[in-house]
Amino acid sequence: MPYDILLLVKQVPDTANVTAEAMRDDGTVNRGALPAIFNPEDLNALETALEARDRYGGSITVLTMGPPKAADILRACLYRGVDRAILLTDRRAAASDTLATSYILAQAIKTIGHFDLVFAGRQAIDGDTAQVGPQCAEKLGVTQITYLEELVSLVDRTVRIRRDTGNGWEIVEAELPILATVTSTANRPRPEAVRKMLRFKKARGETELAAEVKAELRDASAEQRNEEVQRRLTTLGEAGLRIEQWDLDTIGADLARCGLSGSPTVVYRVQSIVLTKEGYTEIPATEDGARQLIHELVVDHTLG
């Protein structure tokens, strides 16, 4: 039985490797300067999806929400053998919290239509919330299985999964469809395949193409450029190299549930923490001393 497999991935700033270049003079992190990477546990989800398809048959559609640049990680999925790639990009989706994000992703999944298994990484390293997977599952009304460590078996419509319970593990059985979030201990993601890379490195989404055309045809009118973009999109589509690009209208999203207005949580304050190593300083054992120490930690960016 061929299975329709969906994969949710996210491009994230590399928060684990804050380099000197990413530091501002005041010692805070300049997020924009951090390299954008494939969220690590989403690579484990990708590997789980690939193994499932290779073992049980079917096809994989990968979906990401993000800026046009997030097409990078969709290509990285194509290089590893994913069948179809969809980029959901829309400025109106910016500043979505996990509730709004999961609403948008669930709408997009409903637009894709039929699915049997959805895989996502356990959590993304920029927020570490682990909330989007379960919230999508709720909106889709499907069984959620978090912290997948092994897809044990898939027979007809019955799946068995070993999941991490935080202080041990359990093997659960469920009927499809399901949504599973995958942990870093599940597998070792395969490298990109060179032949697929050669083939799919030309894969593009519409906004990316438009930027390329704009750079190439400086003197052309907007109309001419647009025609050229459409022409190239058609060619890419025929060659199977088109990254489908959707926005909130494509998925019929209720705008009140997207972006800031769809987000119940509000960031009230942000304090930066940065570190540098220094020598031993004695601090007087007084209230002033305590304040001085905390101040000192702020100034040397141990605390923000």
């Binding site: 992190v29 009230y268 304050r269 942000v270 304090q271 940065v274 923000g304």
Partner: peptide
Amino acid sequence: AFGGNIIAT
């Protein structure tokens, strides 16, 4: 948040 680089309220 942000890999421990910030404290968010």
